[in-house]
């Protein structure tokens, strides 16, 4: 379990990193927290010729709020997000979900950018970014663009990033008042990837009618799945157990579980229903009474 030979380049600025990436393309990989990349290299599942280390680039890390949007630098560590007061105030969904990701040691190193660029379909964050309607900033040496979360994840471990692009930041719109969120997952052990997980968002109006709802799933497809019909079924409703059950039923149709050594497709689909009901219950409760 030793990696194949590779060259190691330390990037001191975004420009340096992008220049190196432009030069090496698919042969080169960015090194963020290394918590997915390095194990995969040790198994020789991936054998990049060049590693471009982003860790020294401080401008890639950090959380700021402007114009109702949280902008999170790609190299922001999980642990920083987990403990950030602004995140807790504006997007508690992230704060609730982060402890489900791996273990503290790994969260001290792992980054939001590395996670999203890695696009593991069982990972929590892609589903969360999808549920929050996030936008991903992609930069290359010559261009910069914004990709909607819905378009970013194109398959298992595959994103819309081009070979010369870096994910530089993630933008997440802050939710309106009377919004509630919940993240629930089932994994075999604490810190494992989810066999099924759901990020639920509901927004109520003053009359307690649901004005907006989003339901995104991890572990239940080759990418984060948004159950649009299920979410739509809630809008305009006064949320109740019956509404949750109907949304759960629709969500079960929307997910596309792949099955694994830990869970059959049937069990995963079953979990999608159970978790949807529970998450909606909690999210609605929070919309009514605050996080």
């Amino acid at each position: 379990m030793k990696p194949a030979p590779f060259r190691y380049i330390v990037a001191h600025s975004i420009e340096e990193a992008l220049a190196a990436k432009a030069e090496h393309g698919e042969e080169g990989r960015f090194l963020a927290g290394g918590q997915s990349l390095v194990p995969a290299m040790n198994f020789r599942l991936v054998q990049p010729a060049v590693l471009i280390d982003l860790n020294p680039i401080s401008e890639l890390a950090g959380i700021e709020r402007a114009d109702g949007v949280l902008r999170i630098g790609a190299m922001t560590r999980y642990r920083a997000l987990e403990r950030d007061a602004i995140v807790w105030r504006d997007l508690p969904l992230i704060t609730h979900a982060l402890p489900e990701i791996a273990h503290p040691q790994i969260r001290n190193r792992g980054t939001i950018g590395g996670n999203l660029a890695n696009a593991d379909p069982a990972s929590e964050l892609p589903a969360i970014v999808r549920a929050l309607g996030g936008r991903l900033r992609a930069r290359s040496a010559i261009s910069e663009r914004t990709i909607k979360a819905a378009d970013f994840f194109v398959g298992a471990l595959t994103t819309a990033l081009a070979a010369d692009e870096m994910l530089s930041a993630i933008e997440l719109p802050v939710l309106p008042a009377r919004s509630g969120t919940a993240f629930l997952e089932m994994s075999r052990r604490r810190g494992d990837f989810a066999l099924a997980g759901v990020a639920a968002v509901v927004t109520l109006d003053a009359e307690e009618i649901c004005r907006n709802a989003r339901l995104a799933y991890c572990g239940l497809g080759d990418r984060p799945i948004h159950a649009t019909a299920a979410a739509q079924s809630l809008i305009g409703e006064r949320l109740s157990e019956a509404a949750f059950a109907e949304a759960a039923r629709l969500a079960q149709d929307a997910v596309d579980p792949q099955g694994s050594v830990h869970a059959s497709k049937g069990y995963q689909r079953h979990l999608a229903g159970v978790l949807t009901r529970r998450a909606l219950r909690t999210a609605t409760e929070r919309a009514r009474h605050g996080h």
């Binding site: 075999r188 830990h262 869970a263 059959s264 049937g266 069990y267 079953h270």
Partner: peptide, 11 residues
């Protein structure tokens, strides 16, 4: 046994 297996057996 496992949660998945229990679900299968119950089904």
């Amino acid at each position: 046994l496992s949660p998945n297996r229990l679900w299968e057996l119950v089904m």
